[in-house]
Design a protein around this nucleic acid. Structure first.
Lengths: 191, 191, 191, 191
DNA sequence: AATGAATGAGATTTCATTCAT
DNA sequence: AATGAATGAAATCTCATTCAT
């Protein structure tokens, strides 16, 4: 089945927002790439901000679902789950890099309830990582002399930062990067 | 001596760019906060982009200088130097958070030679971290079975990410955060 | 049928450009006379220069068509054709004086390919006059001891210059002026 | 003796006004070419319009003087005098083309008394030509069945038009062009 | 479901001019 | 005789949005 007009608008917007930035990409730019007119855009979205909101929700909802899937797996150690979350985060940058970049860069342009909602979900993603760490500490898999919150921030920071440099066709694959990151965070640099 | 008009413009612009975003903060906004006219702005800066360029260069030049100072210290281990760079990066977010946020978020709005220059300096900062790691590996302070480039990316990512959440008046000071991050990266999570 | 918005904009612009000059007449001036907003202007023209280009092309295309019509007439002597071109040129100043004045005065404000195109057409108009003279020389209607190019320049110069002084409601009609000019150029001043 | 600052400003302005147009050439452009600041400009000229006025007066005063010199010569026929005026006009375009182009193109930007004065002088130049023709008619050198005013307009038009195409380093010299024009106006095209 | 015309507010930028020094 | 800082008015152009069809 052919993608709907709404899906096409979102897909092309993501590309444009990524390359030009949200403010610089105009509605006209978006509809030009689709060969339709501005009226069409406003038939599907009530405003430019609403489009951005949907793009961001699409991304964070996907991330939360994937994370949930990992967390809910039975018979897995916390180390395994942490490792899988790291891999998933980096894979998402490989698969959905444009959305990721927009997500991290263009939060400023969302206001009101949507902003609250997205912030809540973004925090949830982080708290879920923190929870893995806390449970791994309790179970004795992780050392418990570090504040779980800071640990979560540092792991997420390192992973999310990949959106600034990771290239799908670069010299390291997403799996390789995730492996190095996991090893780093579990065992550290020191001999 | 009171600050020059040019310095005042830069200072107020940084605040505005941080809170509203580069595109959304207008020249009018900037000069309003200073009680001068748009003509004055253009007397000191040839364009809005040039102002942004100067803000970014100010920031990255400061960072490179600080980094250089740390690297050049004699009688220090590589572990010490890495640890100091981590602390310095997080301190910079405490001291110059607005500039940092602008630096990471608004690169898109710089073009031409300035863009090349800033990218080169940004890369230099990362390569300097990578070089510390490589030399620590050679000297036997760090394990040498991980790719130094990835290690540098992960450490910088974690530190830079602080600009998204670190609050100077929060529950953890910059020194505390830096201590946790250093411990994490050196010794890892595992028991 | 009432004229389209685009036609109205062109018509009013011509008046304004003539009286105030291209640079001094602003888009605001133009839309004020029409009671619409600047957005409307930019809906129809991508820039002020594009509007000027269209005005100029309108004029020179009209002139070339009229000239072509005269040249293609069968059973006419070259003297007749020259005489008709002189009349037509002066009549155009009567009918389209504003466009003519803009055409001769504001070429400077056109750039790029449009400038090349307009220059080519302007040259074509002159070369067509030159061709009439050359053919009249060959056929023995005109003396052939003068360079046709100079002759064409002098005739066109005299005719075009009329835009600087000719007033439709003055003491001499366009036909009368054209008659004197024709007589001058054919038979000269000397007794 | 070195040219005064005022002369330097005028000289450089003429070049700039010719190439960019009066409105498009800014005071800043002018002072940039001289390596001074705007204050200097306003020390010598009270406004941009005054500068233009002086340029135009310089030109037309020169033209009137030259014309006067020719007219006042004793022992010359009217034919000779007409012929000399034609030559002088074309020579002025060779020597002072930039001023000529500015003179004909930028009258619009002069207002008030200066405008009246310049118009009066410009008319005087034309009336002087007309007077030569009238006296030549009375003396029997020229046919007297054509209106002297039209004849003057046509001759001046042809000569002045040269500023649109005449190039000092082109294939015809000013003397050659003037010779053709004189021959044309005296004897006409017809065999 | 989509178009095309129009709006209106605001953006960046330019520039002649002034004035204290 | 000249500078440097500042003004203020206006210029071109952009763009999200609306609405009748």
């Amino acid at each position: 089945m052919e993608p709907s007009m709404k899906e096409k608008i979102m897909k092309h917007s993501i590309r444009l927002f990524e390359s030009k930035g949200f403010s610089e990409a105009s509605i006209q730019d978006i509809v030009n790439t689709l060969g339709v007119t501005k009226g069409t855009f406003y038939y599907y979205f009530s405003s430019k901000e609403e489009l951005l909101t949907q793009i961001q929700l699409n991304y964070i909802d996907y991330m939360l679902e994937e994370q949930q899937r990992i967390i809910e797996q039975p018979d897995r150690t916390w180390k395994d789950k942490l490792s899988e979350v790291i891999l998933m985060t980096i894979q998402a940058i490989e698969d959905r890099g444009s959305s990721a970049r927009i997500f991290f860069r263009e939060l400023l342009h969302i206001t009101g309830d949507s902003l609250d909602l997205i912030k809540k979900k973004r925090d949830q993603f982080r708290l879920n990582v923190q929870s893995i760490i806390e449970q791994g500490m309790e179970s004795g898999e992780f050392r418990d002399d570090l504040p779980a919150e800071m640990v979560a921030f540092s792991i997420l920071g390192a992973c999310n930062w990949c959106y600034t440099w990771f290239k799908p066709d670069g010299s390291k694959s997403d799996t390789e990067v995730a492996a190095v990151y996991t090893e780093m965070f579990l065992n550290g640099l020191k001999l």
